[in-house]
């Protein structure tokens, strides 16, 4: 099965309000604006770092081919760009379709796997720790102590703590 995908003009990697950490060959990115965490494979991270607002997908593909010693198609880089844009890691809107034929998804992913994969994973908070709907610290602290709403929901921006009354002052607070 084929599909038509087009690549938008060159994009620039978003730099603001992001915390970036490298661990064990992975690039971890925390979006301070949306409170989302992402894990980028080595290749996706390379593409992201080289989004300078000038290089096209074709140019990035050529450079990536030189770096890896394997032929990398524009379509492969395009998929990485699409995923990065979807994760809001590029400035501007998501790439639009342009009318270029891509190989099958399977073939594309096979090619991507040869250069280390293109994954841009969203990191979910582990389910056991964040089972309930979370509440922001500000919202928690806006509740008067004793308010039944202050019922131990996880605090979204303070991992490992829960909005509660016990041990707090006039208002509820995020506590272990």
């Amino acid at each position: 099965m084929t599909r038509k995908v087009t690549w938008a003009p060159p994009r620039r990697a978003r730099r603001s309000d992001l915390v970036v950490e490298e661990v064990g060959g992975e690039t971890l990115v925390y979006d301070l604006e949306r409170h989302r965490a992402h894990c980028l494979s080595a290749t996706a991270a390379w593409v992201w770092r080289h989004c300078d607002g000038k290089s096209t997908a074709a140019e990035l593909a050529r450079r990536l081919s030189r770096k890896t010693g394997r032929e990398v198609g524009e379509d492969v880089v395009g998929v990485a760009l699409h995923r990065l844009a979807r994760a809001r890691l590029l400035d501007g809107a998501a790439p639009a379709a342009e009318g270029r034929t891509l190989a099958s998804r399977r073939e594309l992913l096979r090619k991507a796997a040869l250069i280390g994969g293109l994954s841009v994973l969203s990191i979910a908070a582990p389910s056991a720790g964040q089972a309930a709907t979370c509440i922001t610290r500000a919202a928690c602290e806006a509740l008067v102590n004793g308010n039944p709403t202050c019922a131990g929901q996880p605090c979204c921006d303070v991992a490992g703590k829960f909005c509660r009354s016990q041990g707090c002052g006039q208002t509820c607070c995020c506590h272990v």
Partner: peptide, 13 residues
């Protein structure tokens, strides 16, 4: 592993 990744990011934040 997800817990580890989140810990790394939380520590940086």
């Amino acid at each position: 592993q997800e817990a580890h990744r989140l810990n790394v990011l939380q520590a940086a934040v």
